[in-house]
């Protein structure tokens, strides 16, 4: 475990020149997660922003093994790789990591995810939540928050509540659940380190600000990520064998060490919430 960002390894597993958009929160989180996971890692990626981020054949920005898979199969594909490595007595002690977006997790990938969690397969499943189908052009997903404008809720914003994937995963009684954000890289790095050391199914949720999809200045990705935590829209915590522990800024807010911010600034910085009036 590390205490400050200067302790992060200088080894890069995500090279410069990814195809991510400028200010992409995913690229930041991915870079730091890979530092924690190390080179003995196989990342399973369904159709999502991360597919594009890697680059197109015959070049790749990732310096770990990547297995691309069908949209709805992240968890079953990761389970298959783990089973295959085990059956062939592979000596590299790989971390097998599913790395899917919110649509690939809470919508199309939910069935396979639930089954792998129920079997307690020894994999890490990452849901990076940018709150819509960003790779295909910002269509509404189950994880899109209420009132957010997307290209399939173009006039009035989403009329339904955000699906709570953490509650769903909690119901599977898995050994480790954690939330993190690219705005807090030390916390993110440590949670991936911890997940690596735990046997069984690990679920890591990353809250990913998305400049083009949410409509904010790409220079403000970290600011938006921090604001989300500071006003309690996103919470940092771990659930270890069913026990919930708040971390970082969320822990300070919960224990009244720091006041919760008014969310007006968070909403007003993003075009997707332009329909929201200040008093709403």
């Amino acid at each position: 475990m590390i205490k400050q960002i200067t302790e992060l390894s200088e080894q890069e597993y995500l090279l410069c020149g990814t195809r991510a958009c400028s200010g992409c929160g995913l690229a930041i989180a991915y870079r730091h997660a890979l530092k924690a996971l190390g080179k003995n890692t196989i990342i399973v990626i369904p159709a999502c922003c991360a597919t594009v981020l890697q680059g197109m054949y015959p070049v790749s920005s990732a310096q770990v093994t990547i297995v691309n898979t069908a949209f709805e199969t992240t968890a079953s594909a990761a389970a298959g790789i783990y089973a295959g490595l085990q059956a062939t007595k592979n000596k590299h002690n790989f971390n097998v990591v599913g790395w899917a977006g919110d649509g690939g997790t809470v919508d199309i990938g939910l069935q396979a995810l639930s089954a792998a969690a129920e079997r307690n397969d020894n994999i890490i499943y990452v849901c990076y939540d940018n709150e819509a189908y960003m790779n295909t052009g910002t269509q509404r997903s189950g994880a899109t928050p209420e009132n957010a404008l997307t290209t399939t809720t173009p006039l009035f914003g989403k009329q339904h509540k955000k699906k709570d994937i953490i509650k769903i995963m909690e119901a599977h009684n898995i050994p480790y659940i954690a939330t993190c954000s690219p705005a807090y890289p030390v916390d993110l790095y440590n949670k991936f380190l911890k997940a690596k050391s735990i046997q069984g199914f690990k679920f890591i949720y990353i809250f990913i600000p998305c400049p083009p999809g949410w409509g904010f200045n790409p220079a403000q990705t970290i600011k938006i990520g921090k604001l989300a935590a500071e006003c309690g829209i996103f919470e940092l915590f771990e659930i270890i064998n069913g026990e919930k522990i708040y971390n970082g800024i969320t822990e300070r807010i919960k224990n009244n060490k720091q006041p919760k911010k008014n969310p007006v600034e968070y909403y007003s910085l993003q075009m997707r919430f332009k329909n929201l009036s200040k008093n709403k």
């Binding site: 389970a79 298959g80 790789i81 295959g84 059956a87 396979a112």
Partner: peptide, 26 residues
């Protein structure tokens, strides 16, 4: 043999594809 009870045929083949990729006879 690793026998994986999956939740659909879709996942059955996804598991087989990726176990085969990892070097196993499936």
């Amino acid at each position: 043999c690793n026998f994986i009870n999956v939740e659909s045929e879709h996942s059955a083949l996804a598991v087989c594809i990726n176990a085969s990729l990892a070097g196993a006879r499936v």
